[in-house]
């Protein structure tokens, strides 16, 4: 708790002239549209990346990004400025992703066209394309909680404490899920990607 408060103070009084997320959230709650605009522009890329990895379908990802922001803005009065705004925002996104995944269980889980488009846009080699698809399949095949721990810890860079807050589980559980996910990916993807 104290480290959270400390980090909040540092962010609020740091050398950056831009206001912190938490300050903007308070202003947004009071009806400051500029604050909402800054928050949306600041967090949408990271949030969209997380949603895309959770839900590779492009249309679903677009919908979920919109739903996340609408829900966040609608519930700004419930946001506690002592917490990190990004943690709170990703918590909303994760809940929506979980709901959507539950609804989509009957639909095919392997929707890779979007991923192919992504790889084409980023102009990767054919070999990389194949590897990327393998990675997508391997991550998709992980149990949901392991996948969440991996996405939040590895790709989004949240700390163990923040991830536990977002996922709603103890820190130790986050750690074990992440380790299990990495271990599972290692066995699926093999030693091909060893760094030299």
């Amino acid at each position: 708790m104290s480290s959270r408060q400390c980090s909040f103070t540092i962010r609020a009084m740091g050398p950056h002239t831009e206001p912190s997320d938490e300050t903007l959230a308070v202003r947004a709650e009071q009806g400051d549209q500029e604050a909402i605009s800054v928050l949306v522009r600041r967090h949408s890329p990271g949030l969209y990346g997380f949603i895309q990895r959770y839900q590779p379908d492009r249309d679903d990802a677009d919908d979920l990004l919109q739903e996340t922001w609408i829900r966040a803005v609608a519930n700004l009065d419930r946001f506690d400025p002592k917490r990190r705004f990004s943690t709170w925002l990703f918590q909303i996104a994760l809940n929506l992703c979980r709901d959507r995944a539950r609804r989509d269980q009957v639909r095919s889980r392997f929707r890779r066209d979007v991923q192919e488009m992504q790889q084409e846009k980023t102009r990767v080699t054919v070999e990389e394309k194949v590897d990327a698809r393998k990675v997508v399949r391997a991550i998709e095949a992980l149990p949901p909680q392991q996948k969440e721990a991996l996405l939040l810890r590895y790709y989004q860079g949240f700390s163990e404490g923040e991830t536990s807050e977002i996922m709603g589980c103890p820190k130790g559980t986050v750690k074990s899920r992440l380790h299990q996910a990495v271990q599972a990916l290692r066995s699926k993807l093999g030693p091909r990607g060893v760094e030299h």
Binding site: R41, S44, L65, V124, V135, V136, Y155, L185, P191
Partner: peptide, 23 residues
Amino acid sequence: EVKPALDQYRVLEPTTELIETVL
């Protein structure tokens, strides 16, 4: 062992239209 593979999983940036719609 898995890091090089994980780093290949890239995602798209949200388009300007999407950001505007969200906003």
